[in-house]
Simulated scan of single mutants.
Amino acid sequence: MKCLFIAAALALVSLPTFAGEAQTFAFGEPAPASKATRTVNVVLKDIAFEPGNLEVKAGETVRFVLVNEGKLPHEFNLGDKAMHAEHQKEMVAMQGKLFTGGMNHEGMDHGQMMNNSQAMDHGGGHGHAGGNTVLVMPGQRGELTWTFRKSAPIEFACNVPGHYQAGMVGALTIE
Rank of each mutant, 00 (worst) to 15 (best):
K2N: 11
F5A: 13
F5V: 14
T17A: 14
G20W: 05
G20R: 03
T24A: 04
A36Q: 08
T37K: 00
T37N: 01
I47K: 05
A48W: 01
P51N: 13
G52A: 13
N53V: 13
V62F: 03
R63P: 00
L66P: 10
L66K: 13
V67M: 05
N68L: 00
E69T: 15
K71I: 09
L72T: 07
L72Q: 00
L72E: 09
N77S: 07
D80E: 01
K81P: 00
M83E: 12
M83L: 12
A85H: 07
H87R: 07
Q88W: 00
M91N: 06
V92Y: 12
A93P: 07
G96C: 03
G101L: 10
M108A: 09
M108W: 09
G111W: 00
M113R: 03
N116S: 15
H122C: 14
T133V: 15
T133G: 06
M137N: 02
P138N: 09
Q140P: 03
E143V: 05
E143D: 08
L144V: 08
T145G: 10
F148V: 06
F148L: 06
R149M: 02
S151R: 14
F156S: 07
F156D: 02
N159L: 08
H163L: 06
Y164S: 01
A166C: 03
V169W: 03
I174W: 05
